[in-house]
Computed example of a mutant assay.
Amino acid sequence: MLKVEDIHTYYGNIHAIKGLSLEVKQGEIVTLIGSNGAGKSTTLMSISGITRPRQGRIFFQGQEITNAPTDGIVSMGITQVPEGRMIFPRLTVYENLLMGAYLRKDRKGIKLDEKHAFELFPILGERRKQAGGTLSGGEQQMLAIARALMARPKLLLLDEPSLGLAPIVVENIFEVITRINSQGTTILLVEQNAQMALQTAHKGYVLETGKIILQGTAKELMENPSVQEAYLGMD
């Protein structure tokens, strides 16, 4: 579904991504793990067209999207849940959801997806008239995911969904991620909580200073001594 070939992405003169290649097959959850500053979020933003790579190519369902506009990439079926949630604090929960469907015209489909969002996250249904900024961190993360799903993505890019959340909320979020995937959405997950990410994903990549240093099935990575020591807190 997604093929990233040897991309190089810069912030000014800073070479953030250095020849990164990865693949995501339809129906998979693929995780990208690594320490802070490794280039995980930059990789997602390169795919979304927010921070364009200077070299390399990106393909989605066989079509090159390297230089496609971001709204065009969303229309093709790639949606990103940004790090830090980035919900609209003054808009209600319901209005935030509608922003996710901004490029859509099918009113009946939008209504169905609203219903589905409130089934996935019942607390959002209870708070649909509440301002987004008054929600807890966990509820805001749920809203950010629900908003992204309103675009009906084929590929969902999730950037640090567990960031700053209590362990019980993290478990809930990852249960929903698994459920979304089981309902047919392919997922590329960036996550600092390597344990949860590898327990949830089918395969993974380890990113270090802008380069992929390891890749394999989630099970292979969890059993890899260097991954255990560096990311799973095991000696």
Rank of each mutant, 00 (worst) to 15 (best):
K154Q: 12
Q26D: 14
G164I: 00
G233P: 13
T79I: 00
L232I: 07
K105S: 08
L22D: 01
P161Q: 13
M76F: 00
G49A: 00
A101L: 08
R107S: 03
T217A: 12
I187A: 11
L207V: 11
Q80E: 08
E83V: 10
G210Q: 14
L97P: 14
V170P: 00
N193W: 06
Y231K: 00
V206T: 11
D235V: 15
S46L: 07
L2Q: 10
K25P: 13
V170M: 12
N96H: 10
R57M: 13
F59H: 09
T186W: 05
I17M: 01
G184R: 09
S226W: 10
P89W: 13
A230I: 14
V170R: 08
L20V: 15
Y94V: 02
R57G: 02
I177P: 02
E229S: 14
A218P: 12
T42M: 02
L2V: 08
N36Y: 00
N193S: 06
F60T: 05
E160T: 04
E5V: 14
H202D: 15
A38T: 10
L44C: 01
A151Q: 01
L156K: 04
A201N: 12
Q183L: 15
G132K: 10
R104P: 00
A230R: 09
L20R: 06
A201F: 06
L207H: 13
S182Y: 05
L157T: 02
L22I: 09
P53D: 11
I87G: 03
